[in-house]
């Protein structure tokens, strides 16, 4: 009962049918089952997989694990996977392509991808990782299978959503069990799913207002950061998520900037190698040809105010030249 109710709420919010919605144990799980299942349904005649160069690690890992003939579609300097790039990757792939994996929006730089246009131009089934945009932007059109993650929209961790369009050629790619829904395994975490559905309904009710307010603040922050010399403000200026700002500052150590901002009371993330456990720079920034060092990523919360954003912009404007002066530049 609770589960059916949650499924109805999620389906209604996403504008899909309830029987297209499956709850999984995480967003990553939804990506793996969704993408590999779509591949399992098409690989007999068309074994190839194309993925965007700026996809989330969960997509990259699933494609690598599939061992399918594969090709990466380049993104441009704004992080956009263009229709031409998708067509070029389909032509270059060593196998006949059956599935294209393209994100709804980029999780690091916010760029929104032209999903419907890619679906139209290629005529191929699309797997869409919508983890970064679900609850903020409507799902695009043109996909066969989509995935979302509850903690990204403010729900609990440990709940993912896989949506398989009626008629999509999805087939279980992983071992199943003997329960009712062949698309997932194990007992659903009903309380967490209930919380996830309630959170999605609540954020979606305010999504238009939140979008307007956050876009104003991120436009303000992007404008302020662009005034700092030798700064790369990364991501598409307009076709983007409302709440994310990413920028790289030449000659600055990303980790030092994160630490100094933390000291000033601002928690920001970084895609720089020095701030990563792997010591590898962000694959997204690298794919875009953006500067990878001196990078910060700012995510606004629903209650971030204009005063907060101005305070952060002031702190960064003050810190960047001081960090540069330390290295004599």
């Amino acid at each position: 009962m609770v589960l059916d109710n949650a499924r109805d709420v999620v389906a209604d919010t996403l504008g899909v049918r309830a029987d297209e919605v499956t709850f999984t144990s995480s967003g990553t799980d939804a990506v793996h089952r969704g993408l590999l299942g779509l591949h399992a349904g098409t690989r007999r005649h068309r074994p190839g997989l194309v993925l965007g160069a700026a996809e989330h690690a969960s997509v990259r890992h699933a494609v690598a694990w599939s061992a399918a003939p594969q090709a990466e579609a380049r993104v441009d300097s704004d992080g956009v996977l263009t229709v031409d790039s998708a067509l070029e990757a389909v032509a270059r792939c060593p196998g006949q392509v059956g599935v294209i994996a393209v994100q709804a929006a980029n999780h690091e730089v916010g760029t929104v991808q032209p999903v419907a246009e890619i679906a139209d131009a290629t005529g191929l089934p699309l797997f869409v990782d919508a983890c970064a945009s679900m609850g903020r932007l409507p799902l695009p059109s043109g996909w066969a299978v989509a995935a979302g993650s509850a903690h990204k929209w403010g729900g609990p961790a440990g709940v993912g959503v896989m949506v398989v369009r009626k008629g999509a050629r999805w087939r279980a790619a992983l071992p199943g069990d003997d329960r009712a829904d062949p698309r997932s395994v194990g007992f659903e975490n009903v309380p967490a799913i209930f919380g996830a559905a309630a959170a999605l309904q609540a954020v979606w009710a305010d999504a238009a207002d939140t979008d307007r307010r956050q876009r104003h603040l991120t436009d303000l922050l992007r404008g302020r950061l662009a005034q700092i010399p030798d700064t790369d403000v990364v991501g598409h200026p307009i076709q983007r998520l409302p709440h994310l700002v990413t920028a790289s500052f030449l000659y600055v150590d990303g980790e030092a900037l994160v630490v100094e901002l933390d000291r000033a009371g601002f928690a920001v993330a970084s895609g720089s190698a020095c701030a990563a456990s792997t010591l590898e720079p962000s694959a997204v920034l690298a794919a875009m040809g953006a500067l990878t060092h001196g990078n910060i990523r700012v995510s606004l919360t629903r209650d971030t105010t204009e005063a907060d954003v101005i305070g952060l912009a002031d702190a960064i404007t003050d810190l960047v030249p001081r960090l540069r002066a330390r290295v004599g530049l």
Binding site: A273, E280, P281, A286, T292, H293
Partner: peptide
């Protein structure tokens, strides 16, 4: 030999 140099030198 730092892996980030491959991206950051062209970006510079």
């Amino acid at each position: 030999d730092d892996p980030a140099a491959a991206y950051d030198i062209p970006a510079w």
